[in-house]
Design a protein around this nucleic acid. Structure first.
Lengths: 199, 199
DNA sequence: TCTTGTTGTCAACGGCCGTTGACAAACTCG
DNA sequence: CGAGTTTGTCAACGGCCGTTGACAACAAGA
């Protein structure tokens, strides 16, 4: 009998706060499911906001996604907070740390990487936020390719661990994993001149 | 005026052939887009078959996907067709070869890995068809983890190259890429006892 | 006060989706 | 031939989707 009161929350009539709430909810939702599986109504509910406002403020689902897909990987900071010989470990440690924080912005990427609507934005995010600065830092032969391969490895591990949830990587001692991955990456960082490593 | 003749193809009334056509089309379509973006009507059209038949023969979209998600990575064959010291290169070569054939069954996996409906089947496919046999072959300490990391790397590279389409990996000389990746994987294969490689 | 613009609410639209059930055509076997 | 089964066709269902436009509540300026 009582009317279902979805959210008669006395919104304080603050459009900026509303937009922020929508963005927060979008971050949360897109990190849990992929682009298609995430609905505007779901985001709106999470933000305690009417669906129509989402379209009104951000134009479309695609534009909303683009908004939260700004490059935010603090590569420059990671590069500068230690020496080249420990960069591998710093990268991996940061990645694993980030995986524990919610919402994990990397998960947003991984979940929607295969969506034809979302992938262009993701490609841009990776290029600008990760590969470009890293390859500049690396220098030497095939810098861009090496940076891309490092990125590949990190993405692969994250995919198997957080998206596919392979038991061996989920239930494994974190420190062992970090060491193993960091070693591989570090050797890619160091492979400055030699196209063909010692055989 | 003329009735649009979608497909009045005189089907030869062969249910097995029809099922096979649907499976072929499914392979093709699921390799191009992800689980949600691939529609049964699209598959049916490609197979020149009525949509209803897809549901009738395979029960549901999910079951159809499960059917084409049988493990088919010929890991055993790859393991046996050469020595341990060249396994890395054989794995990478096979992967790159496979990426050129259509439909690429690996792409099916990558595209839908993030779909909550599809990912359990994909996890199973990876576990059974790749990680399990490889880790058995590897032996030694942390065999399963090492096999999973190798899988991660291969998946990461494939994702960046074929799904995200990072320019550096798409436009790169294939042989350089293969060498670089194979070296990394080979060192993981070789890291038999030492948990902490030479430091 | 009245007016104007902002912010939130509501209901509906058209579209695509996976799935189902009724029916027609073709083949099989008696 | 006639009955029964398989195979294919067609139209519709209910549901969810992103998006839109009309309208109410409120705030601020005249």
């Amino acid at each position: 009998m009582a009317k279902k009161a979805p959210t008669p929350v006395k919104r304080s009539r603050d459009s900026e706060a509303t937009k922020a709430a929508i963005l927060d909810a979008a971050h949360f939702c897109f990190a849990r499911k992929n682009y298609e599986q995430t609905g505007l109504r779901e985001i709106a509910a999470k933000a305690k906001v009417d669906v129509a406002l989402v379209s009104r403020y951000f134009g479309s689902k695609q534009k909303l996604f683009a908004t939260i897909m700004k490059p935010d990987f603090p590569m420059l900071q990671i590069l500068n907070e230690g020496g080249r010989e420990t960069l591998g470990k710093r990268l991996v440690r940061f990645l694993f740390k980030r995986a524990e924080t919610k919402p994990d912005s990397l998960l947003q990427m991984l979940h929607s990487a295969a969506s034809s609507e979302a992938s262009p934005m993701i490609r841009n995010r990776i290029e600008v936020g990760f590969i470009a600065p890293l390859s500049l830092y690396l220098g030497g032969d095939h810098a861009t390719e090496r940076a891309s391969l490092i990125c590949s490895y990190l993405i692969g591990v994250s995919t198997l661990r957080q998206v596919i949830r392979c038991p061996a990587l989920v239930g494994c001692e974190t420190e062992y994993l970090i060491d193993a991955i960091a070693n591989v990456i570090q050797s890619e960082i160091n492979s400055d001149r030699d196209t063909i490593p010692p055989n």
